[in-house]
Structure formats: structure tokens, C-alpha cells
Design a protein around this nucleic acid. Sequence first.
DNA 1: CGCAATCCGTAGCCATTGCTACATTTTAGA
DNA 2: TCTAAAATGTAGCAATGGCTACGGATTGCG
Lengths: 137, 137
Amino acid sequence: MEEKTKARSIPFARTRDHHANETAEDYVEAVADIIAKSGECRVLELARHFNVSHVTVSRIVKRLQNERLLHSQPYRPIELTPKGATLAKRVRERHQVVLDFLIAIGVDKRNAEIDSEGIEHHVGLKTLAAMKRFLKG
Amino acid sequence: MEEKTKARSIPFARTRDHHANETAEDYVEAVADIIAKSGECRVLELARHFNVSHVTVSRIVKRLQNERLLHSQPYRPIELTPKGATLAKRVRERHQVVLDFLIAIGVDKRNAEIDSEGIEHHVGLKTLAAMKRFLKG
DNA sequence: CGCAATCCGTAGCCATTGCTACATTTTAGA
DNA sequence: TCTAAAATGTAGCAATGGCTACGGATTGCG
């Protein structure tokens, strides 16, 4: 329900809050990707994407709707709110930088794709900037 | 209880299982660090380290004891089992590589420390090898 | 020794994210 | 149209990891 994550110690913000934020990032990113590719985003598509049951997706979509990141009506496609679209844009760009970066340092495409999925959520602004510099240089 | 994480789709293994594994990695690493620094590892030290309550630590220690990673008796210091020590060694080495790597690409120490904490769990063997190559080259 | 402070365990609550089973709504085809 | 399949929702369970409150164990100090 809250907009802001409670400030904990800086290094170990890997708490429940943080994990929920990662989920939010993954979901808005996936929704944006799926809409970009197929025109609309369905619960079952997300379920396939994340390899979880449609029930899990359904509940998370509900939560993200409360957080004003998504919008959906029963039995209808899922859409991003402006807030969600903004987040998705940021997340997708960051993800792309991380993926390109891993490939640039010599990781094969397959493993770069796998690891970038997990790494992206932990890349802060400074690290992201360093990766961009590396890619440009 | 299980040794093996159930195999899901490769990219999105970021499930509850995976998260629990991250916790295990963080804890054995922290226990090893604390023992190395102060000779013994207490519940409250872990609680301070992760900035959580001692109750949370206590329950997780119990779980990791069931998984044969830790060993502790009530009101006694926490120790690593051989299995836990092996994991800790691997995790600490990987963490160090990630930290050194981030610094090498130009991230300041403070942010490198923060981000490496989160990134380390998602660095696969291929990415780790690429980081090592970069550090050597 | 004994008591107070500190440390740790237990009880019991909540949120998140998995699941299966079953109910309901849409949609498409006969 | 009308019915069956596909999609989605709901109910209810488990595991993990947050928490406060409270109680028992250890330890150290007067």
C-alpha cells in the first residue's frame, strides 16, 4: 500500500520490501514486453513468462494494481498505468544496459540473459553509469 | 528440507526457493565473516549485521541448521558445518570478485559494496569467469 | 552469591509468493 | 444459439521472513 520503502540499513535492504519491489519491477517489465510483442498482456501470458501458476500472477497483479502500477478489469487484458509505464521504461533500459554489458565483458548471450535478469535489480545508479561508460568507451 | 531446488524455467528461477537460497548464502557468509573478525558468531551479531530482529535470525538459523549448513545449541555461538564452510568459502570468494570487479570498472567503494551484496547471488559461473578475466587482463 | 543486564527462545501476528482445487466468465465453434 | 474449451477468479493451504511481546538462560559485577 505504501509508496515508500522503509529505510533500513543501506547494504542490507534486501528485505521483504525490497523483494516485493523486485517483483513489481519484473512484472511491469514483463507487461511492457508482452504488450510490445503481442499487443496485449494476459494473466496466462505472465504465468508462462514467469513459469508460475495463473493464481500467483492474479494475486500479484491485484497488488500492483493497488500500487497504481497496473490496471486491469476481470477477464480483461492487463495494462500499465502512467506510473507503471514510467517504471517499466526505466527497468527495461537498465536491463538492456546490464545485458549488453555482460555480453561486452565476454559472457555468452544465453548466460548473459539469465544473469542479467537477477542482477538488474541490484544495479544502482553509480554502477549503471559505470556500465554505460564501459559500453561507450 | 530438500537439498535440491526444484528445476523451474531457467531465466526465472527467482522464486521462493531461490530467495531462500540467497538467504542461506548471505547467512553462511556473514557467519564466516563474523567468526573471522571476532572469534565467534552470536545471534545478535547477525541481527545487527542484517538489521533485523534477533527473532528473524533465530528462525533462519534453525532452518539452516536443518539444512546442515550451521550448527548451534541454545544460547551458544553459531558455527558452520563443513558443508556450510564450503558454501561460505565459495560465496565469499565470489563476493570478493564481484566487489573488486565493480571497483575496477569505476564504481566507488561505497556503492560497489552495496551493489555487490545484491549482485553476487545472481552471478553465474560464466559471468564470474568473465569478471575474473577482466580483473586479470 | 545473587541480582541485573544481556542474550536468546517461543508464541503468535502479518505480508508475500508459491500451490491445488474448484467456480465463474468469455469466447469460439458446431 | 448453445455448449465446450480456455481464461480468469476465489478459497484455502504452506513456506519464508518480517515484527512485538514476553519469558527463560547466561553472564558479569557488586
